[in-house]
Design a protein around this nucleic acid. Structure first.
Length: 680
RNA sequence: GGCAAUGUAGCUCAGUUGGUUAGAGCACAGCAUUCAUAAUGCUGGUGUCGGUGGUUCAAAUCCACCCAUUGCUACCA
């Protein structure tokens, strides 16, 4: 086997919030791969950093009354602590706000400019006259130009799903100051990405991307690439563009360059050769581990920039999907938006590493953390199967044989079978098919337990506690266990270190599977891992709900009343114009062709002739409710609202629900309310 | 609106160059065992393989349409 020389990067977390379990999925995946490669004897440099630039960070720092530098220094420390807690073993955890990154970003930009790959042109953008800064779409809210829904962001409407320019919003306002934005011209710098189409088409099909990722990229490539706006106007927290006063690099320009900068810093510390990993024609490997949300930045802009600046392109980009919790998006109100720190307070980090590994593949599929399944799986596999092997064998050796393993083992065929699995498991680790690797390892653990049950050392021990056959059986069991721990070491490095202490052996390497431990004096066995207690999961979820209350890392209060400030005061008479009635939902169904709407049939009681009054309304609550959940519920309808023609028919009223666009909660009436009763 | 991925036992997932009665682990039931962190072993049932239609001697596997979930739709970090 030839020794590989690999530089691995992990996506840079944004320095404006805590690390959560969704982040950890990608870091744990990369870390397992890195640890595996190192166990194989390959050279791996593993770098990461905080992504520290951008408007959001600038604003957060202002709110907190500190400098951006202070803010990112604090966050960097927290992030690094979280990664250490979860045994993510970076060689360096740096920041994009570094001298190395400033230098490299400027250099790469200048090379692009010299190559004629930079264009400038004037664009018109909304500008906050009070704060004197240009506003990205998400900092602008207003009324949707199509459906008139209030409080919509500057790019698309969450109610009717239409897309538009921020300039089309009715009554736009800056979410930063509340001021009405004005249109203002500014020169922007663009990277001429379309000129790289042919190169990128070839590169993305060169074989090192998952097919699903290549397909995704060809969507963009076939649809025609656009020039990429790489400048932002002051004030902006970032690096000023050379020879362009008041213009700053857009954060996504210098973020991937942060990989290089981080590695450059490591080179200075360790005396490594930077060029051997970045120069055009380098024979080392360069691997990026990222989430599927940032594919375009890494597989389009990044190779194009590297190419232009005379650097090598990545060997491979490994893409992971998003983390779901209990089958749904992570949600603060459900308590499933769980930070690394909160998890660590309640549960063992290596349990999460195992659960992720058990479900990871090389595909960018989303991964579901089902909390009930998590406890069952970890307890069954790790405690019940693997650790149990050591636990049930060690007692005999400790108590009856002076801690000494037998001079030989008594089932070479079984040991050989365990050892021979090494090649297949290694192949699966290398190709990032961790789930399949875990399945094979657990099947071996089952086999070990079955074998011990068959040998029944406890029966022999009863008639003669010092029977050497008992020593042989248990020594063999511990050797089987040792092989399994070698296989699990990339996933469970901490537990494996405890095992190394227990067996009094040096750190296990992959090649150690070929040997057997005999005549060894071992330590007294102590429990390696406790079962996951479901009540601790519940406590963790509860604690995550509390997070919602609301101070984020920047100290800013985040509540519904602050994100959507109170509307102007009204007179009672104005309120009284709104006629709200209790309505019984008699039917609810999907609307063919509608993304967000449900068609709802309401019963409003009887009219003066004793005929039932029914109303048909459309409501954008499909994301939150299934039709069958709604039927039979009593709710509140604005009954005198003018009927509105919609694409799918007339909507005769509006049912009331609370929501911020992400989550929706229908208002319901307590039992006893009758359809048609007025709500006041 | 366009596009992509996903949809297989209660749960989490395997399974496609189309081919005999569709698999694993967990959960569940019975038996055994009690060395082990109530851990382990043996045995057992479980599925209209999201839906409809089509191609075929034969489809979970290919095609079309539909439904659901998640996401993307680049000047958004």
């Amino acid at each position: 086997m030839t020794a590989r020389d690999i530089l691995v990067t992990n996506a840079l977390p944004y320095a404006n919030g805590p690390i959560h379990l969704g982040h950890l999925l990608g870091y744990i995946q990369a870390d397992v791969w890195v640890r595996f490669q190192r166990m194989q004897g390959h050279t791996v440099h593993y770098v990461c950093a905080d992504d520290a630039h951008g408007t959001s960070i600038m604003l957060s720092a202002e709110k907190a009354g500190i400098s951006a530098e202070q803010l990112i220094a604090g966050v960097q420390q927290e992030h690094h602590r979280d990664f250490c807690d979860f045994l993510v073993d970076f060689d360096i955890y740096y920041s994009t706000h570094s001298p190395e990154n400033r230098e490299l970003s400027s250099y790469i930009y200048q090379r692009c400019q010299q190559a004629g790959r930079i264009a400038t042109r004037t664009i018109s953008q909304l500008f906050d006259p009070e704060r004197e800064l240009f506003l990205a779409d998400r900092f602008i809210k207003g009324q949707c130009p199509k459906c008139k829904a209030p409080d919509q962001y500057g790019d698309n409407c969450e109610v009717c799903a239409s897309t538009y320019a921020a300039t089309d919003l009715i009554n736009p306002r800056s979410t930063i100051s509340g001021a009405t934005p004005i249109l203002k011209d500014s020169i922007h710098y663009f990277f001429k990405l379309p000129e790289f189409t042919a190169m990128l088409k070839e590169w993305t099909r060169s074989g090192t991307l998952a097919p699903a990722v290549s397909n995704k990229l060809s969507e963009w490539l076939d649809g025609g690439l656009q020039e990429w706006d790489i400048s932002r106007d002051a004030p902006y927290f970032g690096f000023e563009i050379p020879d362009a006063p008041g213009k700053y690099f857009y954060v996504w320009l210098d973020a991937p360059i942060g990989y290089m900068a981080s590695f450059k810093k490591l080179c200075a510390e360790k005396g490594l050769d930077f060029g051997a990993y970045w120069d055009n024609g380098a024979t080392t490997e360069l691997w990026h581990f990222i989430g599927k949300d940032i594919i375009n930045f890494h597989a389009l802009f990044w190779p194009a920039m590297l190419d232009t600046a005379g650097f090598r392109k990545p060997t491979a980009i490994s893409v992971n999907g998003f983390l779901m919790v209990n089958g749904q998006k992570m949600s603060k109100s459900r308590g499933t938006f769980i930070t690394a720190a909160t998890y660590k307070e309640h549960l063992h980090p290596e349990c999460l590493r195992y659960y992720f590994a058990a479900k990871l593949s090389s595909n960018p599929d989303d991964l579901d953390l089902n909390l009930e399944d998590f406890a069952l799986r970890v307890n069954a596999d790790l405690v019940g199967k693997v650790v149990n092997i050591a636990s049930r064998c060690a007692g005999f050796i400790n108590n009856n044989f002076n801690n000494r393993l037998s001079v030989h083992i008594n089932d070479t065929a079984l040991i050989t079978e365990f050892q021979q699995a090494a090649a297949e498991i290694a192949e699966l680790y290398d190709s990032r098919e961790f789930g399949k690797a875990m399945r094979i390892i657990m099947a071996l653990a089952d086999k070990a337990n079955g074998w011990i049950a068959e040998k029944q050392p406890w029966v022999l021990s009863k008639s003669n506690p010092h029977d050497p056959v008992v020593q042989d059986i248990c020594s063999t069991g511990l050797n089987l266990f040792r092989v399994l721990m070698i296989y699990l070491k990339p996933v469970l490095p901490g537990i494996c270190a405890q095992v190394e202490n227990f067996l009094k052996i040096p750190p296990l390497q992959w090649r150690d599977v070929t040997t057997v431990l005999t005549s060894q004096i071992i330590d007294t066995f102590t429990p390696l891992l406790m079962r996951v207690d479901p009540s601790k999961i519940a406590a963790m979820v509860d604690a995550s709900k509390d997070n919602l209350t609301l101070t984020t890392t920047d100290g800013a209060v985040n509540s519904p009343m602050t994100s959507t400030p109170l509307a102007a005061e009204i007179e009672f008479a104005e309120f009284a114009k709104v006629d709200m009635r209790i309505a019984l939902i008699t039917n609810a169904e999907h609307v063919e062709g509608a993304d967000k709407l449900l068609r709802i049939t309401l019963d409003l009681g009887l009219d003066q002739h004793g005929q039932p009054i029914t109303r048909n309304v459309f409501s954008g609550i499909k994301s939150a409710y299934k039709p069958e959940q709604l039927i039979g519920q009593y709710t509140v309808v604005v009954a005198n609202l003018k009927a509105r023609k919609m694409k799918f028919g007339w909507s005769e009223g509006m049912i009331l629900a609370a929501g911020d666009g992400n989550e929706i909660y229908l208002l319901t009436a307590h039992a006893g309310a009758k359809p048609g009763t007025r709500v006041t």
